[in-house]
């Protein structure tokens, strides 16, 4: 009986009747994600051996820099902090959508059959842990502040004073993009006013509603900010490293470094 029904379904739909190139999107997203993962892993692991700071610049993959004296030379300080943005992005609703589609093929695209025979969604361990997203969000907001501090510091050369360089602009943009990504976070949008039902009752609530509206604007473009900020973190790291290791020269107003 069941077999009959399944075969009728197979006959009716096959894997999909979609004729468009539905596999392009999951392939590109999956590929992009993999490329970034690979780059950032390599960047962090080789960290100590390929300088990541120069003059007033510090690669965002090491911000904030935690490098106590007892830390072995071979251990990359990136590992001490990277769990936070990694956790934030892994549990992010947008990234979940993307890797569930590209890597879990669950589903690969809309109205395309999913290969797995059973499915329990986020109801069981380990995927139930996705619910910790809001804690990573709190930490990520702290990181956003630290990245802005780093960006501001990049205009101040120790011993020389105020100035500007291409690297400072890159670091500023980086802090901005990461901030936009965080502001669009679904958990943040919920935290600020999403849990309220009536916004108009008190002035505080109306203020929270205003913030909710602003976060909603960022939220609608969460996907765009997710990719922009992710790619830009990689580019910022690459730029600073190339400068730090003398491959290219940073244009700036300072005399030394």
């Amino acid at each position: 009986m069941v077999a009959d029904a399944m075969s009728a379904l197979q006959r009716r739909y096959g894997k999909t009747h979609r004729k468009d190139r539905w596999w392009v999107e999951p392939l590109l997203s999956g590929g992009g994600l993999a490329a970034f993962l690979l780059y950032s892993t390599v960047a962090v692991v080789v960290g100590p051996n390929w300088s990541y700071e120069v003059g007033p610049y510090l690669s965002p993959m090491f911000e904030p820099l935690i490098r106590p004296d007892w830390l072995p030379r071979w251990f990359s300080p990136g590992f001490l902090i990277l769990w936070a943005p990694a956790g934030f992005r892994t549990t992010c609703y947008y990234y979940r959508r993307t890797y569930y589609r590209s890597y879990f093929l669950s589903p690969p695209a809309c109205a395309v059959a999913e290969p797995a025979a059973t499915y329990s969604g986020e109801s069981k361990f380990p995927l139930i842990l996705q619910n910790v997203h809001r804690y990573f969000m709190y930490v990520a907001l702290v990181f956003n502040v630290l990245l802005w501090v780093g960006a501001v510091k990049s205009y101040w050369m120790p011993g020389e004073g105020l100035g500007i360089g291409v690297g400072s602009i890159v670091m500023t943009l980086n802090a901005f993009f990461l901030m936009m990504y965080s502001l669009g976070c679904h958990s943040l949008r919920h935290w600020v006013a999403g849990g309220l039902n009536s916004f108009s009752r008190t002035p505080i609530r109306r203020l929270r509603r205003k913030a909710w509206e602003i976060f909603t604007i960022a939220n609608e473009k969460h996907r765009m900010w997710a990719w922009t900020s992710m790619i830009f973190v990689g580019l910022t790291d690459l730029y600073i490293r190339l400068v730090a290791n003398g491959v290219i020269t940073d244009i700036h107003t300072w005399k030394s470094f």
Binding site: Y93, R96, R97, Y100, R101, F104, S106, P107, C110, A111, Y119, S120, G121, E122, S123, L127, I128, H186, N219, E220
Partner: peptide, 22 residues
């Protein structure tokens, strides 16, 4: 709700443009 893995196909197909997922 915990079965939804927010892959957003419902939102993509909604003819009324309701942002079901978000």
């Amino acid at each position: 709700l915990e079965y939804c893995n927010i892959t957003k196909c419902c939102t993509e197909v909604c003819p009324e443009g309701i942002h079901i997922t978000d």
